[in-house]
Amino acid sequence: MRLAQLSEIIQRRMGWCPNTGMVRAAPSVLSMPLGVMLPLEPDGSAGGSGRIGRGIEVLSGSIKTLNKEKRLLWFSVLTGLVIAFMFMAQYALHVLGSYPYEMISSTLGVVLTFCIELISVFCICLILAGLFLSRPADPVDAGVSIRLGLSKATTHARAFVCWSGIMAVLGTSVYLLIVSTGDLTIQSLITRFPFGYIVTPEIYGSGPIAGLFHIQYASLATIQMMIINVALFILTAFVIPVLVLEKKPLWAAIGESTRLMKKIWGEMLVCILLLGMVITGFSLISGIFQVIFSAVLLDSPFWYEFYYKGGWSAVAALYMAAWFTLILIITTISGIVIRNIYTCTTSGRMPGVPEGYGRKETSG
């Protein structure tokens, strides 16, 4: 009887029943993959290599998400429309403010520049909010439609107007400061970019159809404002997620975004550098246009047949279309990165990983 009682105690304590069939279990070493050892709230022991690894993991996961949910590319299309608006508005602004028209004063030009920035930033806020609301916290769950996500985003329009006003004041001020200082660094980079090779150099002039003159200015202004806006959105990356996901007031969202940025600045920096390297690498291909343009003789048959009959402009236009498409895809990836990092920071796990998975048990 003592052996039987001892056997019952062992079975009860270990949760084992002799009548239960054998269950195969995966090795314990596979139950805790390294990739889920988050949250993105590193303690003092987390070094730079840990931040780099987590940043790479978040970025690769975001790319996989976009590859799996190609419907999110509609946000790239919407972003492209906003950039197209900025370009056309800057083009019209330059036409109206140039000789022989000069229909607007410099003061009115500044006001219109602010209006362009305000509208653009507001639209970008709506697009980002729609992206965040279209995706669930866990990709295992089904997300809502793009239209429904954007519809939900419009409920925060008042907060977006206030936030866009703040961003537009800062963005316009920095843009005007760059213009007033006469810094030619960005301008020289853009003029070396193959914008000038899409429209033949013969089309110069100051009229509304003078392609190169106004196109280069509009391109320069648009890219400068895009760079400024990207920098501002990076510095305040979590304001929009906190506004739409936690439904906090604007000033609380700004404070919460600052607090979160202090925790995961390393991971954000890794993602920014990697995406920036992709853009820079593809942009450097434009140097081929300059080499060919300088090497080919003007009186050669190739130059006459290829350049003057439109082949050169067609190739440059295809390159610019590919470059612009890459930029738009990266904008969507960046939005997914912000959403995933926000989820990691607030919930302590990567999206798609069941809660508690990979954590140590603390049962007594």
Rank of each mutant, 00 (worst) to 15 (best):
S206T: 15
L30F: 10
P351D: 07
A322R: 01
Y91K: 04
Q90M: 13
E361D: 04
A157Y: 12
V244F: 07
T222G: 02
M86T: 09
M350R: 15
M86A: 09
L131G: 02
V110Y: 07
A321C: 01
L38R: 09
T236E: 01
C162T: 10
A237G: 03
F324G: 00
S334P: 00
F195P: 00
P33D: 03
L59M: 08
G364H: 08
S151Y: 11
G48N: 01
G53C: 02
E8A: 14
P18H: 08
F306T: 05
E267V: 11
L245A: 01
L131N: 04
W265S: 13
A322P: 00
I285C: 06
K360A: 11
F122M: 12
L220I: 08
I146G: 01
W74V: 09
L176I: 14
A25C: 03
R54A: 15
A316D: 01
L118E: 03
E256V: 04
Y308N: 11
E69T: 06
L148S: 09
G255E: 09
L150Q: 01
E256R: 15
W74L: 06
S283E: 08
G348Q: 02
C17E: 14
P42Y: 08
P241W: 11
F132R: 01
E102M: 14
L318S: 08
S257R: 05
N67M: 14
L73D: 00
L284K: 11
V174S: 00
T185H: 11
